[in-house]
């Protein structure tokens, strides 16, 4: 069996590892939440590591996605700005505002 992650590498076995993944996933976990999640995720990961039991030589390459049939492009009327922004909690001048992205001081 090929080990997939050694215990020291397994990011779910540490609070810091879970916090790092949470940052990548744009989630915030407080230290207590991260510490509580680590063993649960580690337990799931141990089960997932069973896929390492199959010898490499037996494994085919992943199958390509099935071919999709594309229709010809056709212009159709869109729903319009009012309809598309109807679900936004806040609009301003017909747009959906977001926090400033560009630093105004530069």
């Amino acid at each position: 069996m090929v080990p997939m992650t050694s215990a020291s590498e397994n990011p779910f076995l540490s609070r810091e590892g879970v916090e790092r993944l949470a940052r990548l996933a744009r989630l915030r976990l407080d230290p207590a939440e991260a510490a509580a999640l680590a063993p649960k995720l580690g337990h799931i990961l141990e089960h997932i590591e069973r896929i390492a039991e199959i010898p490499d030589a037996d494994l085919p390459e992943p199958e390509p996605s099935p071919a999709t049939t594309l229709r010809a492009d056709q212009p159709v009327p869109g729903a319009g700005r009012a309809e598309l922004s109807r679900n936004a909690a806040v609009t301003s001048h017909g747009l959906v505002p977001v926090p400033r992205v560009v630093d105004a001081s530069r």
Binding site: M4, L37, L41, L45, L59
Partner: peptide
């Protein structure tokens, strides 16, 4: 989301996502 982020993260994607996709093909 955390498990999926891990399976696709740099250094682990081959061992997890790619390998799982190959087992799926099998």
């Amino acid at each position: 989301i955390l498990l999926g982020t891990f399976a696709l993260s740099a250094g682990y994607a081959d061992a997890f996502y790619k390998r799982a996709s190959r087992v799926r093909a099998l």
